[in-house]
């Protein structure tokens, strides 16, 4: 065993400096994914066959290709795209890259929530002569959204663990700080261990919280099937 506590304590404050970036990036890309996911769900509900087909496959494409490559595409390739391309900072690139990738998953969560509202609710709204907008706002969304909350919470945790990918394009989160420290001192062991511990300490309680929430919602809404869909996507 070749563990050095003095290195550990020396590296700790240095690595922790990156924590705010990591957390800020998590929330920023999460927000992006929530909004973008909404767009996918909306597009998919437009009753137009070719459009539907196109959206489905674009989403499938985004979902089944590596987010790391998507990140590189946005950071390195986007500025080179003639006409519409522009240079984005590493942080912005990471928000967009990670955000878009996960928006396709988030969109599925929205969809499952909406589909969990029974057909009878739509019919009842029609019978009450609600407008489309009223139906969504007063009837569908209040029922569709609450059961998705635990799943959405899950994705926040998943994206938190995904954010260190951004260190590869120079976002100075905790992983990047640890690598920098490691390169300086020719020792990665303690610094990387700190990163692992930080992730564990932050994500584990969050995961427990989400699990609790999930049980509570399960009891309240009795909608086991949609909540079971936790795909546990990491990466």
């Amino acid at each position: 065993m070749n563990w050095k506590w003095d290195m550990f304590f020396d590296a700790f404050p240095f690595v922790v400096q990156g924590l705010w970036i990591t957390i800020a990036l998590t929330f920023a890309s999460y927000l992006f994914a929530l909004l973008f996911g909404f767009m996918w769900t909306f597009l998919k509900r437009i009753p137009n066959k070719p459009l539907n087909w196109l959206v489905t496959w674009v989403m499938e494409f985004i979902r089944s290709t590596p987010p790391l490559v998507q990140l590189f595409f946005i950071f390195y390739a986007w500025p080179m795209v003639p006409g519409i391309g522009m240079t984005l900072s590493p942080f912005t690139s990471a928000i967009v890259g990670i955000g878009i990738h996960y928006s396709t998953y988030i969109s599925e969560v929205y969809r499952s929530g909406i589909e969990s509202v029974g057909k009878g609710q739509w019919e009842a709204s029609r019978a009450l002569n609600f407008t489309r907008w009223q139906t969504w706002r007063k009837v569908i969304l209040p029922q569709a959204l609450p059961p998705t909350i635990p799943m959405l919470g899950n994705y926040l945790i998943i994206m938190f663990k995904e954010v260190p990918l951004a260190s590869t394009i120079g976002v100075t989160g905790i992983l990047h700080m640890a690598n920098t420290y490691g390169a300086h001192h020719f020792r990665y062991l303690e610094a990387l261990t700190i990163v692992a511990i930080l992730f564990l300490v932050l994500s584990y309680p969050a995961a427990v919280l989400v699990r609790k929430l999930e049980e509570k919602m399960n009891r309240r809404f009795d909608k086991n099937e949609i909540l079971k869909e936790d795909k546990g996507v990491v990466m």
């Binding site: 663990k161 995904e162 260190p164 690598n179 990163v195 692992a196 994500s203 990491v234």
Partner: peptide
Amino acid sequence: FRGTSLIVQLFW
């Protein structure tokens, strides 16, 4: 392993 990040595990 579920609580930490894959990329961190890989580097580790």
